[in-house]
Nucleic acid binder design. Structure first.
Lengths: 210, 210, 210, 210
DNA sequence: TATGAATGAGTCTTCATTCAT
DNA sequence: TATGAATGAAGACTCATTCAT
């Protein structure tokens, strides 16, 4: 035991520390490569060999860091969510009762739109895979809940007594999401998206102001 | 390439009247088999051999009726849409200015919910594939437009001067769709879906009543 | 027995005669269709279904007239040979000792060139299949022998004592064939084909004049 | 399409020095297997699974070394050409002005005959595929040009002023090729091949000696 | 005789995962 | 730990030929 832990202290740690760092970097690189490839050609057209090559690692090592191909994707999506959440959470945490709800909402929708534009392809992949894979669906759901939770926190200060708050926020989230989805990913020439955006905001404002 | 597309045209069965019935029945069987298998195991896990076997035909004959595997799916989805549309259109065409909007909407949401429950798996596949395949996306889009068009016709009688009518109907459609999607496919125990339904209806009612 | 032969005389003949005619026409149409399709897209890319369709007959009936797909080709090639031989034989049979050999040769090469240009694709197919299928090779060989025989007949009048006449004619045939093949099917920009043609003719003239 | 050609470049093994040997050996084995199978049963009847099995590798690995089935054949034919060229080039490079042209020619024809006998079946396949596939035709053409070029080099020393040298050498090549083809692959009992050979040589000698 | 729908074995190719080195 | 060559099952699609009508 001693000798082992000694080894740990004496030899391994020095060696492992940098390796662990490298390991983390490697994992990160794989995730990054996966994300980029999925953004380029979609999940199904991205092979594990592609990912390893792009990450600059061997195919085999990928399976030390991830259970299987989907596991890489899951990690990549998790990271994507984080990136998408960051500006949102920042905005939401700065919420203040005195702020104008509409102005805030406006800014929120901007953020959503930006993020849809920026992550267009992975977003589509996400929608596609969520509908068909329960693990990914669960992750998407969790992400949604996190955002909705944050929104509720922000709103509870403002209107604690609002009935069906959770459901309202849920709908709000989906209205925004739907609008962004439609306007950025599948724009329809017959639709006036700025008009639609106003309608969405009116809808939400009425709902949250009763 | 040329010879291929030529073949497509030439090879497709020139269904003559007396044989048409059988041919249609067989085509129907293949579509049916595809639908069932897709509902069971999803499109990607369903092989052409599976479909042929389930339909009780040979692999080869499938390619007399359909261009390729996706073409079967497209036909199956088209049929699914029709089945889903039928009761909707019936309801919408019976619309009358004196009818209560809320009552009508209520019935509409019932229909949507039923349809989501009944076609749960193929609906998910549809969402999944739409996000990733432009042919299927186009079909889904066209379906959506048909429904939205019908809704607009119904509403134009009632409120011809309503501003942004198209955008409003669009949002209405998506609100209903989202609610049904959530409540039937991925119910969340924290959500009170009947409350959510009320909120959806209020939202819509307010939007359409100005 | 009697009644049978009676039948033959009474009923069958009248009915069969026109049918046989039709049968022959049908067979001819199939051969024609085969030839055209092979000229267009090559033998391997031509399906029996294509042939039947183009000939305006059913797939099944093709197999009453021909043993298998290759058998159609064999018949088509046989016909092609005949078409190619006709002008050649006409020229050769008009041969006369007083004619200028060079002038005659010139005309012969014209014919060969024309025929190569006219039947470019089927000719290539012929070469391709001959190299790999003994039935087709045999047919090609027989065609060659027929032409060479005719040439020999023509030349024997002129130079009966020419040693190795058969071999010389054989070489003559192949020189002409090679020249036509190269110049019409795979022209090489570095080659001066009119110079080559002169060389071919000189070669032959020297050989046949000793 | 883009991703495909990209993959081609990426996927091809970046053979590192230490592994190169094994990789080359394996590639060689696959080529060898292809050659043998093509010689046995022809290209079209040889499946990729056959080739892999005979080479003692898995189906999949074949596609790390070759783009597709035809690419294996192309490599195999390329090698065949090299093997056939080697003795020819040796002979041609040892050419000397003082040498007897006829004697040299005699040796050349021996080599050609040997090579035709040795590579009978693949040679036939080559002819067959050249007539029908432009990639293979291009390769055959290039091979031909290489030989003809070498011949010209050898002859230019001797008879630099010979008019139409290129065309003459071309014809020479085809005369020899035709003779070998006929005599070894499809011998005709009516033909005296040694007489024919003499005629060929006379023909060539006369042509090259003006 | 005629039809043409139907057959189904056979083909090339892909790719997540493993394992000898 | 790391490599990347190797595996091999699986999948979409073709087509000469047959056979029920």
């Amino acid at each position: 035991m001693k000798s082992e832990s000694e080894k740990d202290k004496d030899t391994r740690p020095q060696i492992r520390e940098p390796q662990q760092k490298r390991a983390i970097e490697k994992k990160e690189k794989i995730i990054q490569a996966c994300m980029e490839l999925v953004s380029e050609k979609g999940y199904r057209s991205t092979t594990t060999v592609d990912i390893a090559k792009k990450a600059g690692v061997s195919t085999g090592i990928v399976y030390s860091y991830f259970k299987d191909k989907k596991d890489i994707l899951l990690s990549a999506l998790y990271q994507l969510f984080d990136q998408m959440c960051d500006p949102l959470f920042e905005l939401l945490s700065s919420y203040d009762n005195n702020d104008d709800l509409i102005a805030k909402l406006d800014r929120l929708m901007d953020l959503f739109e930006e993020s849809h534009l920026k992550y267009k392809k992975p977003h589509q992949e996400l929608v596609s895979l969520s509908a068909v894979d329960s693990d990914i669906a669960a992750m998407t759901k969790a992400f949604e809940k996190r955002i909705i939770g944050k929104c509720m926190e922000a709103l509870e200060q403002r209107a604690p007594a609002l009935p069906n708050l959770k459901e309202k926020v849920h709908l709000t989230y989906h209205l925004v999401e739907t609008y962004c989805h439609e306007s950025t990913l599948y724009p329809d020439p017959d639709i006036d998206y700025s008009a639609m955006r106003s309608e969405v905001m009116n809808c939400i404002a009425r709902m949250l102001n009763q």
